[in-house]
């Protein structure tokens, strides 16, 4: 069982919005987050963590299956850094 968009939409629905509007609101929120990262701007959420955009330079790599050398192009990736608060919460539970 995983947390999906649907479950978030259901909770927004509980605020009193129609089903259609709830979907629209959640999609808007996702779009805002994606657009910010696309524009190279980090997304900081206190108590949760930060989504950062990082530039990776070109590097030589290897195809792990065949062992062939290959060149990995420079690219831009999104990284996530968990906040201390969330990390403590995750680790305070049962082992």
């Amino acid at each position: 069982m995983a947390l999906t968009k649907n479950k978030i939409v259901e909770q927004v629905n509980d605020l009193g919005f129609t089903k259609k509007k709830s979907v629209e609101i959640v999609e808007s929120l996702l779009e805002i987050i994606k657009r910010s990262l696309e524009e190279n701007e980090d997304v900081l959420v206190s108590g949760f963590g930060k989504f950062c955009v990082k530039d990776k330079s070109t590097r030589r790599g290897r195809n792990p299956a065949t062992g062939d050398d290959l060149l990995l192009e420079a690219r831009r990736v999104v990284t996530f850094k968990c906040s201390g608060k969330l990390r403590d919460r995750i680790n305070s539970g049962k082992e």
């Binding site: 995983a2 947390l3 999906t4 978030i8 969330l86 995750i90 539970g93």
Partner: peptide, 13 residues
């Protein structure tokens, strides 16, 4: 979800 070790899947994000 994470504190209960549940997976999260937000398609596209």
């Amino acid at each position: 979800a994470l504190s209960e070790e549940e997976r999260i899947e937000i398609r596209g994000l």
